[in-house]
């Protein structure tokens, strides 16, 4: 089951802005290594889940994974061959708004080489380019 909020204030939301760089969630806080987004995108719940599963499979129950993004924005779409108007479309899925610099995942308790391999597999499932980062001085 894809990630989504349990309770929301409003059923649908406007598109909002994706300008600028990530002002929060842009440093490695919990683990030792992180996967950083280099471009802006709406990351869907399915994409996040695919990355999480791929990393866990690669690690084989070693280390600890932190997912730093959550799809809390409803994404709506009108059905095919429907004329414009008649209200906003139905909720199609949930997305996380990602700006450059955002840390997407963090790993700890494993060697750097293993973290690099796991993040490389996760990065191949991402719709944007990413970078491997480590805690502390960059």
């Amino acid at each position: 089951m894809p990630l989504m909020p349990k309770r929301v204030k409003y059923r649908q939301s406007q598109r909002g802005s994706r300008k600028g760089n990530a002002t929060s969630g842009n440093t490695v806080e919990f683990g030792e290594y992180g996967l950083m987004a280099l471009e802006r995108v709406w990351l869907t719940a399915i994409q996040i889940e695919a990355c999480r599963v791929a990393i866990n499979r690669e690690l084989k129950r070693k280390g600890k994974l932190w997912c730093r993004v959550f799809p809390d924005k409803p994404y709506s779409k009108k059905p095919l061959e429907v004329r414009m108007g008649k209200g906003k479309g139905a909720v199609e899925g949930w997305v996380a708004v990602i700006k450059p610099g955002r840390i997407l995942f963090e790993l700890g308790g494993i060697p750097e080489a293993m973290a690099k391999i796991a993040f490389r597999i996760a990065a191949s499932k991402m719709p944007i380019p990413t970078r491997f980062v480590t805690r502390g001085l960059a």
Binding site: M1, P2, M4, P5, K6, R7, V8, K9, Y10, R11, V53, N56, R61, K62, K64, V91
Partner: peptide, 27 residues
């Protein structure tokens, strides 16, 4: 040092169909 993580439970496919929309607080 924590115990190794348990195997991930694979969610049944039927549960996906039952994935309802989240509760709307204001409604």
């Amino acid at each position: 040092v924590a115990a190794p993580r348990a195997e991930e439970e694979v969610a049944p496919v039927a549960a996906e169909g039952a994935a309802a929309e989240p509760e709307v607080i204001t409604a």
